[in-house]
Simulated scan of single mutants.
Amino acid sequence: MSTTTPSSVPATDASPGTGSVNPSDPSADEIATLARAVTGAVDLDDAAWRRYLHGLPGVDRVGADARAATLGTRSIKTTSKAWALDTIIRMVDLTTLEGADTAGKVRSLAAKAVRPEPDDPSCPSAAAVCVYNDLVPVAVEALAGTGVKVAAVSTAFPSGRASRAVRLADTADAVQAGADEIDMVIDRGAFLSGRYAQVFDDIVAVREACHADGRDAHLKVILETGELVTYDNVRRASWLAMLAGADFIKTSTGKISPAATLPVTVVMLEAVRDFRAATGRQVGVKPAGGIRTSKDAIKYLVAVNETVGEDWLDPDWFRFGASSLLNDVLMQRQKLSTGAYSGPDYVTVD
């Protein structure tokens, strides 16, 4: 699997993680300037993007799958497992994205995010609670002063099939309601049709909406990798999103299959590693959908450590989008401390 940075990318000094999701806050003009410098283009039209994105090093699918399989066989010691379980909890975006969601369910989820194990004050809080726009005010009120973020899915989630005006209004609604983070979806139809300039401009516009009126919502860009078909497309979409100013790149909405997979996440981790080496800007990664057990989540932590290093082993730079993962992690954590598993009902929010 190639890990070579494109020769057209200007090398700069890489910046280590600083504990901030977005250490730099480039404007739309600065984003366009960086994109032109990286692509070597004067006009960022579809032809220029095609030349650049299709010139990225190809991904050896067999090699990527083999690499992920190898990472998945790593074993860790008991002390490392305790650290890993607490780290996973701190990285979880506890998520409910169902049409039947209620304010009561969101309040319960928020309480669980703040105190996942009520009887154990050493248990860390989750990173965020992720909800639909209309429930953002409920989550904001429930999480006020806790340090747990409120994330909102936006831009006509999960399809992204709406005009730019509608998607920007959707984003503005969530940001004005107090969302700390916006999880947007790209227009996969546009991307797969080669309308790369449109996708780039969409992301830049949404990012501007995240910062309108003095707001500072961080932007996670969902690639919906299960619909991108090839690993080469995953790498291309990752670079396009990062050049457009994404704070995070995210695998999936969780609404289609396959959602997050370890090989796809490794490809995205290599992309953020190479992007930081090339531009000095660090971008986070969020696999979402289908990660249900602590055993699986630990494989992702190993992939992070061995692919991009310790700088990304922090909730500011790596997240899990999950609804049921936290329950299994809590049961495994209780097993380490007590020697026995609690029943699943003990850790279930419903």
Rank of each mutant, 00 (worst) to 15 (best):
residue 126 A to C: 15
residue 158 P to R: 08
residue 144 A to E: 15
residue 132 Y to A: 04
residue 123 C to F: 03
residue 163 S to G: 15
residue 119 D to G: 10
residue 170 D to R: 03
residue 150 V to I: 07
residue 125 S to M: 05
residue 157 F to K: 05
residue 173 D to N: 13
residue 130 C to L: 05
residue 125 S to N: 02
residue 157 F to S: 06
residue 125 S to L: 04
residue 144 A to N: 14
residue 137 P to M: 09
residue 127 A to L: 03
residue 174 A to R: 02
residue 159 S to D: 10
residue 112 K to N: 04
residue 145 G to T: 12
residue 164 R to N: 10
residue 150 V to Q: 09
residue 127 A to T: 02
residue 140 V to W: 12
residue 113 A to G: 08
residue 151 A to K: 06
residue 123 C to Y: 03
residue 175 V to D: 02
residue 133 N to Q: 06
residue 129 V to W: 00
residue 169 A to V: 00
residue 117 E to R: 06
residue 154 S to F: 09
residue 149 K to W: 14
residue 175 V to Y: 02
residue 148 V to F: 08
residue 164 R to M: 15
residue 161 R to N: 13
residue 136 V to C: 13
residue 141 E to A: 15
residue 165 A to I: 06
residue 141 E to Y: 14
residue 116 P to E: 09
residue 149 K to F: 14
residue 124 P to L: 09
residue 138 V to S: 09
residue 144 A to V: 11
residue 145 G to S: 12
residue 127 A to N: 12
residue 128 A to N: 01
residue 162 A to R: 14
residue 173 D to L: 11
residue 168 L to V: 12
residue 174 A to G: 00
residue 165 A to V: 09
residue 172 A to P: 00
residue 128 A to W: 00
residue 114 V to P: 11
residue 141 E to I: 11
residue 123 C to W: 01
residue 114 V to F: 11
residue 118 P to N: 10
residue 172 A to T: 07
residue 153 V to G: 13
residue 171 T to N: 03
residue 121 P to R: 02
residue 138 V to T: 15
residue 162 A to P: 12
residue 149 K to M: 15
residue 159 S to K: 05
residue 150 V to D: 09
residue 161 R to H: 11
residue 142 A to Y: 12
residue 174 A to K: 06
residue 117 E to Y: 07
residue 173 D to C: 07
residue 168 L to N: 08
residue 136 V to D: 13
residue 160 G to H: 04
residue 126 A to E: 08
residue 160 G to I: 02
residue 121 P to Y: 01
residue 149 K to I: 06
residue 129 V to G: 01
residue 131 V to P: 07
residue 130 C to Q: 00
residue 117 E to F: 07
residue 131 V to N: 04
residue 148 V to I: 04
residue 141 E to W: 14
residue 170 D to V: 04
residue 125 S to P: 03
residue 171 T to Q: 00
residue 146 T to G: 10
residue 131 V to H: 07
residue 167 R to M: 14
residue 134 D to E: 13
residue 119 D to K: 02
residue 138 V to Y: 11
residue 175 V to W: 01
residue 165 A to H: 08
residue 161 R to F: 07
residue 139 A to I: 09
residue 173 D to S: 12
residue 154 S to V: 15
residue 156 A to N: 09
residue 127 A to C: 11
residue 170 D to Q: 02
residue 167 R to V: 04
residue 150 V to E: 10
residue 130 C to R: 00
residue 140 V to C: 13
residue 114 V to W: 07
residue 117 E to V: 03
residue 154 S to T: 15
